[in-house]
Computed example of a mutant assay.
Amino acid sequence: MTLTPEQRRTRILEVVRAQGTVRVVDLAAEIGLAAVTVRRDVAALAEEGALRRSHGAVALPQGAPAVGPDGRGLVVGMLVPTVGLYFDEVIAGARAAADQVGARLVLGVSAYRAADDRVQVAQLLRSGAGGLLLTPSWTPERGPETGDWIGELPVPTVLVERRPPAAGPLARLDSVGSDHRAGVLAALRHLVSLGHDRVLLAARTDSWTAHEVRAGYAEAVRALGLAPVPVVELDHVTPDLDAVASTLVEAAASGIRAALVHNDQDALRLAPLLRSRGVRMPEDLAVVSYDDVVAALADPPLTAVAPPKYAVGRAAMELLLRHHAARGALPVHHVQLLPDLVVRPSCGGTGTPCR
């Protein structure tokens, strides 16, 4: 495969970080490129201040840490679609694992714009990232098929809260994420244990998690033998929560006394709207929310599916560090962590978190 100049220079930096001072001819042999090409790239990197040259050899600038086999000194780029709420915990987990070995985490944010994924990743590589944790801006309409370029990145890469397809260029990428479908099944199983035979889903459509929640709901309804109920749509930009609340009131009047709401920001905002319409939680409608970011702050506190956000970030970073230490000798890992169901007053059940 022909490398782009950016890919060549990223690979040069990766080798220099790992080996310290390297002769240019040895560097060219290690990467498998013509010496003249490597000299040109080294000159460009030296001009940027990313390398220093001396007597036919190159090294990191004075004071720049070399990368140890345990990941010390490694720069890891992390792409997330947003900061705040859900992804803050994922980032915190990744940062904790990086800090533990002396690696440095550098963040890029795409704001859920797929076109910005590549721009942000390119910037992370220019910042010296020797490994990447990526959460691409995939949606049900714009999925992994738009991200084939990720499979061509020149540094070890782990997908975070995204699953690669079983076939295609991304199939050999590592991934760590939450098993959202299992989380939905746990929520519906709990509601069934409380005597509910129909559960309404109110959900968004704009994110990968929303897609997994909807798919998990369809699977859980079939697995538990529940009567099917049409999904209540939550607009991803400005959901009309007044209309959603009215739909939930009508559902409760028709005998549907349980609902799962994705996500818990919307569930929290729905709670007072339901109360103003005379619907009490959990007496008239048992409610479970999804994400468990602010669910405990609702009135009443919301039972919630809690994806293991911090653990996902930490496990993704630890997997990347293991690949760094093994220099690509590890098998591909597709890791899914099970969410917890945190039981609170909104569903009428009591108990401890369960899986």
Rank of each mutant, 00 (worst) to 15 (best):
L3C: 01
R17T: 04
A18D: 08
T21H: 13
V25H: 13
A29T: 04
A35S: 11
V38H: 07
R39M: 11
V42F: 12
A43Y: 02
G49C: 08
L51A: 04
V58M: 12
L60V: 06
P61T: 02
P61C: 00
A64R: 04
G68F: 10
G71N: 08
R72Y: 10
R72C: 08
G73I: 13
L74G: 03
V76H: 06
L79E: 07
T82I: 12
T82K: 13
V83F: 14
V83K: 14
D88Y: 00
E89P: 00
I91R: 05
D99T: 05
Q100V: 08
G102P: 01
L107E: 05
A111T: 03
A111F: 07
Y112M: 02
R113P: 01
R113F: 07
A114C: 04
D117T: 06
Q120F: 09
A122P: 09
A122T: 15
Q123N: 14
L124E: 08
L125P: 00
R126N: 09
L132N: 11
L134R: 08
S137M: 04
T139R: 11
E141T: 06
E145Y: 03
T146H: 15
G151Y: 06
V160I: 04
R163M: 11
A167F: 11
G168C: 07
S175R: 03
D179Q: 13
V184P: 09
L185M: 15
A187T: 04
A187E: 07
R189L: 05
V192E: 12
R198Y: 01
L200P: 00
L201Y: 08
A203P: 00
E212H: 14
A215L: 15
Y217G: 04
A218L: 14
E219T: 14
E219F: 05
G225H: 06
P228K: 11
V232H: 09
V237F: 12
P239S: 06
A243H: 09
A243L: 08
V244Y: 01
A245G: 13
A245M: 10
V249P: 00
V249R: 14
E250I: 03
A253G: 09
G255W: 05
A258Q: 01
D264C: 02
Q265C: 03
Q265E: 09
A267S: 05
L268E: 04
L270A: 12
A271W: 02
L273T: 01
L273Y: 01
P282I: 04
A286W: 02
V288D: 02
V293Q: 11
D299C: 06
D299G: 02
P301I: 03
T303E: 02
A304C: 07
A306G: 05
P307A: 11
A311F: 12
V312C: 10
A315M: 13
R322I: 05
A325L: 02
V332A: 10
L337I: 12
L338W: 06
D340N: 04
S346A: 13
G348P: 00
C354T: 13
